[in-house]
């Protein structure tokens, strides 16, 4: 399976993704500079975390004009897979490939800690092999991750089963206390209506190596790959 990991000025989780995909998952990975125009035949485009363009204006707002984003939109339009994590999620919402926006955390704090995620929809490639009764322990690290969308869009996300992940307690229950950044409906990740573009704030790539003491994140990559391999 071929992955492209995009690199913007200010990306800082690109190498973590390359490491997990190449060294742990054994996949073919190319890093693609944001000024390039070619996704080099990648089947999955990864938009990594970081602070693209220093988060100037709004997180993700300037990155969406990078030349490679035109190719990413065309790839998504053709049904190709795109997965944005943290700043990558912010970039995809700014680019209009995912609905809603990520606002400053309600607590006003940059929150960096392990949290629990529950899978709400298993009807995507990314989530098909995840267990919706389980809470996955995944690190979050962001200052602007409060998911917001107007009521009509929220309703659509619910009606069309586009909410992939919610912040939850260790036992999987969804509570206000577990919703550290103040996201509407505890939303931590969503997909587009065509179900081939995914965005999430927490970082599964930071919990995929045994050396780090938590491999819950690897399950997300295994889910994506397992289902992709099944399709071939």
């Amino acid at each position: 399976m071929k992955f492209a990991v995009l690199v913007f000025p200010g990306s800082n989780c690109d190498d973590d993704l390359v490491y997990v995909l190449r060294e742990i998952m054994g996949q073919s990975v190319v890093k693609i500079w944001h000024k390039d125009h070619d996704l080099q035949g990648a089947e999955v485009v990864m938009v990594p975390g970081g602070f693209a363009y220093g988060d100037y204006l709004r997180a993700g707002a300037i990155a969406r004009f990078s030349p490679i984003m035109r190719e990413v939109a065309a790839h998504a339009q053709r049904g190709g897979y795109v997965w944005g994590i943290c700043n990558g999620f912010q970039i995809l919402t700014e680019a209009g490939l995912l609905e809603g926006a990520l606002l400053r955390n309600l607590s006003r704090q940059y929150i960096c800690k392990n949290i629990y995620l529950r899978t709400l929809s298993t009807q995507t490639l990314l989530t098909r092999q995840l267990d919706s009764s389980k809470a996955y322990c995944i690190p979050m690290a962001h200052g602007e991750g409060r998911y917001y969308a107007p009521m009509n869009i929220l309703k659509k996300l619910q009606d069309q089963d586009q909410i992939l992940f919610q912040y939850c307690e260790a036992d999987g229950s969804v509570s206000e206390a577990a919703n550290l950044n103040g996201s509407l409906l505890n939303i931590a990740g969503i997909c587009n209506p065509a179900r081939n573009v995914f965005g999430m704030m927490p970082h599964p790539e930071r919990a995929a190596d045994e050396m780090l003491g938590n491999t819950d994140g690897r399950l997300f990559f295994e889910s994506l790959l397992g289902t992709l391999l099944e399709k071939v």
């Binding site: 204006l57 809603g100 926006a101």
Partner: peptide, 8 residues
Amino acid sequence: QLLVNAIM
């Protein structure tokens, strides 16, 4: 197109 995100 750039300066304002109409959602927020």
